[in-house]
Amino acid sequence: MARFAMVIDTKKCVGCMDCVVACKAENKVPEGFNRDWITTEARGKFPTVQMEIRTERCNHCGNPPCVHCCPTGASHVHDLGGVVLVYHDLCIGCKACLASCPYDARFIHPEGYADKCTFCIHRVEKGQDPACVSVCPTHCMYFGDLEDVHSMVSRLLAERKWYAIAPEAGTDPQLFYLV
């Protein structure tokens, strides 16, 4: 078994949005929609401002409320790596999963189904990195298998300080931010 995760080094991310553009191109995400996005936090008073920039997307939660609430089984956990996916032709577009996601990671594709980050499973299954990871000019994103203790993601989490976003929502998120 594998448990896919992303580790993002906020020390290196410059918020350039290449990951967002790459995702849009790779996955033909329609104009006006995003599967990933950049969040910038600036704390403090000029000139002592603390900044953090990070890239966000679906957390491919270990305990995914979007899957639990789905009435049709359209939202499901993929056999490989715990990736959360949507079968387009099972989805009725009830939007329960949108409302259930604490990260607002989902949206309704103009064709009617719920859509979101797929961890680029079509690439990963071919042994490639997700599009966003492969394009990042600062090399600040890492994708890999947490079950494998030798993987880059496991090593980074063992060596560096990190956090996940809103773990108190109880979803067991699988995106980790290095600080």
């Binding site: 350039c16 949005m17 290449d18 967002v20 553009v21 790459a22 191109a25 790779e26 492969s134 394009v135 990042c136 000019p137 090399h139």
Partner: peptide, 21 residues
């Protein structure tokens, strides 16, 4: 889509967001 050319010493196989777009 357009990706970086891994042979290229300038881009090292990664374009900037404008290039990707």
């Amino acid at each position: 889509k357009v990706e970086g050319n891994p042979l290229d010493p300038l881009s090292r196989g990664r374009l900037c967001p404008r290039g990707t777009g």
